[in-house]
Design a protein around this nucleic acid. Structure first.
Lengths: 247, 247
DNA sequence: GAAACATTCTAACGAATGTTAGAATATCAT
DNA sequence: ATGATATTCTAACATTCGTTAGAATGTTTC
């Protein structure tokens, strides 16, 4: 029976006859089959990466690992899933070489396999934000509830932070701050914010950031600070987005 | 029954008690549920994009659409799948807003929804090449069979092409050349190459390119030209990769 | 309006995936 | 070694996905 995509059934593939004029029918067929098999294999491999990122929970786990290496338990709690499910997802990610694991005593620690993975995730998220109006709507609602940093550029923020005109606070857990943070930022985890209020000057503007645009910690921090009379705004970028804009 | 990720079952989420001290238990619970639901929704939306790219055939279709708009039939033939299956995959891609369709007479034409999609695909492919040794191996074998352009930089190639030291040929079908091509390149589809050999100078180096690193047309072109005594090499970049390096 | 054609919709099947619970494994403290 | 703890492996289930075939839709041409 003839297939739709039969090898020689139409004009679309007629160039093959020119290119392969010298080849015997058997050789021609084998050449095509081989080429097709090579392509299939190549795309199959690329799809391994996108399949690994094709689940909301795996995306969330990857996002958390962009901040710092973490144990299975930490990851499961922060993503609100069971330890078993987290472990299973992490193994899928490991099979796709997106993360690596290492044992530290009783705990298994997972970390991103490469900075390229973080870069890919940001590209993916930005594409989703550009294309999906549903996502734009959801993000817009987040933005409305809090005040965003309006001081234009990255360099301006760096400048003002370096000479003390604004105070940049990193409201993530301390270990994530230690793993990597924006220059001149001060670690002030959301959990300690209320107790350490006296460290913050009322006269200056306070810029709070957290894990990135999908993390709500800076939103909460800004809401709290503004209620107490501080001039607080939030920066949507996390450390990965920040570094990306550098290149 | 108590869940692993119960809301108040452990120290990991204890900061909530500080932040939300002022809230009643009901308010606290509702705040958490809402935050979790927002995050779930956000990641769900992002996953729509990666799910759409999580199939080898859909990746191949997207890759073809990066070259030029095409009808369902053209796409099905070039990807070696049935028209029905192609249509089905294209509708998945359309649901994820990665492609758009337009009717031209009897034919339905699909095109990329945005250049960001092409950019995302290259990022994905590059990540796959970096992380997956299986893919590196497959690509390496392709490279061995043909001679790659060794003239270092993009700018050098542009320079040499502009003053005629090398001849850059685009071996894709003519409509893809018309849609977009590398500056100074000459359209010479693989199907016509043998018939138009006399247009190519034997004294100069010929650089052939096609759809990108996973497309085998330039490999075949170079193989043919070298057998006939031409000084031909191939450029792995397609038009998308080329433009990306511009920014 | 009828015939011809390209595409999509519907239904169906087996294959792959997400999730959970229980058993098994590896490490640490004793 | 033994018990306690963290993680992974196994098995099971419902759900989703890839693929195919047949019916239905929309468009052009006559």
């Amino acid at each position: 029976m003839l297939e739709y995509h039969c090898f020689m059934g139409n004009g679309q593939v007629s160039w093959l006859f020119h290119v392969c004029l010298a080849k015997s029918p058997w050789e021609l067929r084998s050449w095509m089959v081989t080429n097709r098999e090579i392509k299939n294999e190549l795309y199959e491999q690329v799809a391994r990466i996108s399949k690994a990122s094709a689940s909301p929970k795996r995306l969330e786990l990857l996002g958390l690992l962009c901040q710092a290496p973490k144990t299975v338990e930490m990851l499961s709690q922060e993503a609100s899933i069971s330890v078993k499910l987290a472990s299973s997802h992490l193994q899928d990610l490991k099979a796709a070489r997106l993360v690596e694991s290492e044992r530290h005593g009783k705990n298994m620690t997972y970390k991103l396999a490469s900075p390229s993975v973080a870069n890919f995730l940001v590209t993916l998220r930005e594409l989703a934000e550009e294309r999906l109006t549903e996502l734009q709507e959801a993000v817009r609602q987040l933005g409305e509830s809090a005040h965003e940093w309006t001081g234009a550029t990255r360099d301006e923020l760096l400048q003002q932070a370096s000479n003390g005109d604004v105070v940049v606070i990193d409201v993530r857990p301390a270990n994530e701050f230690e793993s990597a943070h924006i220059p001149y930022a001060r670690s002030m985890p959301l959990s300690e914010l209320k107790a350490r209020l006296k460290e913050l000057p009322k006269g200056k503007q306070i810029v709070a950031y957290c894990r990135g645009p999908f993390c709500l910690m800076s939103v909460d921090a800004v809401r709290l600070l503004r209620k107490l009379g501080y001039d607080a705004v939030l920066l949507k970028d996390g450390i990965v987005e920040w570094n990306r804009r550098a290149g």
